[in-house]
Write a protein that binds this DNA or RNA. Sequence first.
DNA 1: AAACCTTATGGAAACGTTTCCATGGCAAGC
DNA 2: GCTTGCCATGGAAACGTTTCCATAAGGTTT
Lengths: 350, 350
Amino acid sequence: MAGTTERGEAGERGPGRRAGRPATIKDVAAAAGVGIATVSRVFSGGSVSADTRARVLAAAGELDYRPSAVGRSLKLQRTGGIGLIVPDVTDPFCADLIAGVLDCARTFGEHVLLDAAHGDAAREAAIADRMMEQRVDGIIAVPEGAPAAWRSVVAAGARVVSVDRVLAGAPEILTVLIDDRAGVRALVEYLVGLGHRRIAFLGAGAPAVARERAFRDTLAQLGVAVDEDLVVAARPERDSAYAAAAGLLQRQAGASAVLAAGHLIGEAAVLVARELDLRVPADVSIAMVGDVSWAELCDPPLTAVARPGHDAGYRACELLLRDRARAVGGPVLLPTELVIRGSCGPPRRS
Amino acid sequence: MAGTTERGEAGERGPGRRAGRPATIKDVAAAAGVGIATVSRVFSGGSVSADTRARVLAAAGELDYRPSAVGRSLKLQRTGGIGLIVPDVTDPFCADLIAGVLDCARTFGEHVLLDAAHGDAAREAAIADRMMEQRVDGIIAVPEGAPAAWRSVVAAGARVVSVDRVLAGAPEILTVLIDDRAGVRALVEYLVGLGHRRIAFLGAGAPAVARERAFRDTLAQLGVAVDEDLVVAARPERDSAYAAAAGLLQRQAGASAVLAAGHLIGEAAVLVARELDLRVPADVSIAMVGDVSWAELCDPPLTAVARPGHDAGYRACELLLRDRARAVGGPVLLPTELVIRGSCGPPRRS
DNA sequence: AAACCTTATGGAAACGTTTCCATGGCAAGC
DNA sequence: GCTTGCCATGGAAACGTTTCCATAAGGTTT
């Protein structure tokens, strides 16, 4: 080390450093009169003498140096970032999920890349591809696309955690599920317990097959017949949900209770019931899967099955980051909770 | 070029390539029998002969090669990523904002790093710092922290767009605002037009100062006196909002209408009114700033000022990415819309 | 006092990409 | 036929970091 002369020069921003661009490790090294290896050790926890460390930190502060994550990622071959792909950011469940992932990621010091696929498998694949290019450490998704597409992502070297969807035939993908079966069962048992025998299921079809199955199974178990007229398909979109709800309630099919398979469908049911001047729960009981904030604000407040979105996100992230050893061991199953409010009562005696 | 021999070897994965790791540009070059410069040109749009291009693409497909964004970022000195910092992901306005940013970012082919500050200025600063280390191209934030902190982020070389908050004394920070003044004015004029003279403002204080000011200004303009007893402070959190609403409505202060400064506060007002068996709008009219989805589900549906969160996010992102030339020119001001529903009526004659 | 160990430090290679520059081949113009 | 220019291509440097290795200095042990 040449001594104080260089150290003196260091204070002024050296001629080598360009103004607009952020300082690099070399600038700091030059300013502190040490080698770049030493600067690196100061910032990534190597052993450095107290004196040198102080000098380096002073120089770094002076130059407003921040280590470049890009340089580090290149060298270390990992970026420390996780990708998160959801269907729709504005959906309350997804929002909770995101919050959970963020909370967990913070405890691990990782950052999160977010994107929304809006139910489009091709878009989802493009997003996953992009995230792979970014060399994220792993991807958490509520996948819409085919298992095959996701298997190829795994084959490309990513760790993938699937949340709230089961990717059949992709055993290498960790999964976090919510126990909708138990939730629906509890809800159906509750309704039957109130005396309902003609219970409608609103929202059969694609994303809610498990819920429909649980609905049927539970009724069968309780010895209540399922009237196929009361099982109505609906996709979880406002238009579809509204049409289905109107169709069901208008035709006076004689349902004494309606079980909505999702919160958008529940919303439609509430709206339609109000338009038809049906009193809830006197004329018809309504309950839904998914306990969103408006359920409590409704009049009457809506009975619902709460799904732990935040927990799901947190667990998924934990699974991705903690158990790097591919400790599979079956999907994580998170419990639901039946939140009983005022929207269900005994059926009108007919 | 040595010819077909090397080309032949290329098909089998060469001995140089390790199994677990993703293929690099070198692997592809070797496999295709070309130089790495040529491979780079194929993937980043240089001019390559059709024959060579086909060969490179074939080799790349074979090896499942994806260009490393890390390597590229390092060389290009820009990552093509933008940071987004919001107070709370689960807030409906923030969710809309995020969706808007994502939509815009996609059209520019950029990705988004998301994090939530939860009202903690220190955490916000740490997040911004982290994003700077990631060398994002810019940061969009709903800032909670002091302008000084954000100025230092700008000084460090980032482009920053502030949404829904004005950072006083930081002229170099672009800003997207929502015209709450006009929204509140429209709402107050509507209430006064219905005959209300004793209008309460629920949620005075920190984040809603502009709304409170607009409330006072409009009343003054209309010649209606402000009763300070009816201006109640509340932070936009459930506890605080609930306490404030209960305080106001219980003490029978004689408000004929309540203007809630935010959706959480409006929620509290609705809940408290219901608990006190106040009929809406017969006993008291309620309206709020922020048109969230439950406003329509409420009974009666709530009159509200809609704030364009999606637009705000989209415009912020556009500002960040398009106008790289620091085309400042004052903050962008987005219009609100008064959505009249059933929660406001003429005051009870007393 | 010599040999050895420990500690602090710097040099240099490597990570994967883009791009400048040089090279070589080929066609066109004189 | 020779020069000129263009096009396709490859080599090599650079981006900012981490880490292996070597070196030097100082202290400890025999």
